[in-house]
């Protein structure tokens, strides 16, 4: 258990700390690439622990299905701008199948959807951002299911977490180091989009969580996952 906690703390804290201290200590050097590498390394522990665990075939298929659904959702809802069910589906997966499944669904959705929308140096950041949204949702799963207020708060927060990570990326990429004024400026300019994302997450979760949850619960009992 202690081992597990240490691993979680390492994953949650070490990487942001390294990125921030690195960019404060050496402001004249380009840290965009280093941050990309760090983000890739941040995803590795999740993949390793998933790889080493014994998982049933059905769980594998479920994660694949949820990933495919969230990627397909990005296409399906393309007529309605800004309303994308990806985050909501990642949260639902995490709530019902645990934080690890949530992380994997988030990270893989980012990679796979970028095959259609264009890979770039931002891919690892998207992987990390969606993965961490799913991971935290998995940790809070019982509260999210029981308490509606926490569910609403978290779905709003998830949009903020996502755009926070992506704003760090924008700053590092365009400046080569962590420029606080640039970070604040990009946060302010992205604020309306963040708000729309958060609200769309909320709408999707409010509409989808109950029906999908029912289906998943029935599914879990019927097939014993």
């Amino acid at each position: 258990m202690l081992n597990k906690i240490i691993r979680y703390i390492f994953i949650l804290c070490a990487v942001p700390v390294i990125i921030l201290t690195g960019s404060f200590l050496f402001p004249e050097k380009s840290y965009a690439v280093i941050s990309v590498l760090l983000v890739i390394f941040a995803c590795i522990p999740f993949f390793i622990s998933f790889e080493n665990k014994k998982t049933s075939t059905r769980t594998l298929v479920i994660i694949a299905i949820m990933t495919a659904l969230s990627v397909a959702g990005r296409f399906i809802f393309s007529p309605i701008p800004f309303f994308k069910p990806v985050t909501a589906l990642v949260i639902i997966t995490a709530v019902y199948f645990g934080s690890e499944a949530g992380f994997l669904t988030g990270a893989l959705s980012a990679v796979i959807s970028n095959f259609y929308f264009g890979q770039g140096p931002w891919t690892p950041f998207q992987m990390f951002a969606w993965g961490i949204v799913g991971f935290i949702a998995g940790l809070l799963s019982s509260q999210i299911l029981k308490n509606k207020i926490i569910m609403i708060l978290y779905s709003l927060l998830s949009g903020v977490i996502y755009s926070f990570v992506m704003d760090i990326w924008t700053t590092l990429w365009s400046d080569g180091y962590f420029n606080l004024t640039r970070f604040l400026a990009s946060s302010v300019t992205s604020a309306p989009i963040t708000a729309i994302y958060s609200i769309s997450n909320l709408i999707f979760l409010l509409i989808l969580l109950k029906p999908i949850g029912k289906k998943l619960d029935r599914f879990k009992i019927k097939y014993g996952i």
Partner: peptide
Amino acid sequence: ISPKISLIFSMALHFIPNFS
């Protein structure tokens, strides 16, 4: 390197057009 994750990956790639 990572057989399970690449299995999920390829399955998801297969499901996406079907779902759409």
